[in-house]
Amino acid sequence: MIKTFYEYLMTQRNPNSYEPVAEFANNAFYDQAFPKQETSFDILSKYLEENASYLPTMTVFDEAWSMYLASIS
């Protein structure tokens, strides 16, 4: 079974890090509405653009998405 983006993102959590992907993961962990079962770039991107005020730029998501794709291939 393919790991969801959220499952991958949670492997990047680090409360002591200021690295952008780690901060994204830390904040997504507390986002109750995050689409945790999603594997679609478009759906995740739309959700983050509309709801994730904790994400300073979508470039962070793009970087995390690239890392996610590398981890499942």
Rank of each mutant, 00 (worst) to 15 (best):
I2A: 08
Y68N: 02
I72A: 00
L44G: 00
I43Q: 06
Y47H: 09
E19D: 10
T39P: 00
Y18A: 15
E19C: 07
Q37G: 06
P15W: 11
Y30M: 14
Y54M: 11
E49Y: 04
D42S: 10
F34H: 00
A52F: 01
V60G: 11
F41K: 14
Y6N: 04
A22L: 04
P35Y: 11
Q12C: 06
S73Y: 07
N16W: 12
Y6C: 09
A64V: 00
N16S: 10
N27F: 09
I2P: 00
W65H: 07
A33K: 14
K46P: 02
F61K: 03
N26S: 07
Y18E: 12
A28F: 00
E50Y: 05
N14F: 06
E49H: 10
P15V: 11
I43D: 06
Y54E: 05
V21Y: 00
A25T: 11
R13H: 11
A28I: 03
E38A: 14
K46Y: 09
F24L: 14
V60Y: 07
Y6D: 11
A33W: 04
P20T: 06
Y18S: 13
A64I: 01
T57R: 15
S53C: 06
S71M: 01
F61E: 08
F5A: 02
Q37W: 09
W65G: 04
M67I: 00
I72C: 08
S66P: 00
D42F: 10
N14R: 12
A22C: 08
N27T: 10
I43H: 09
T4L: 01
R13D: 06
V21T: 04
Y30A: 12
F5W: 03
A28S: 13
F24K: 11
N14M: 03
N27Y: 13
S53D: 14
S71L: 01
E63N: 12
Q32W: 15
Y54W: 07
S40R: 13
E19P: 05
A64G: 01
M58N: 11
S53T: 15
L69N: 06
Y54Q: 06
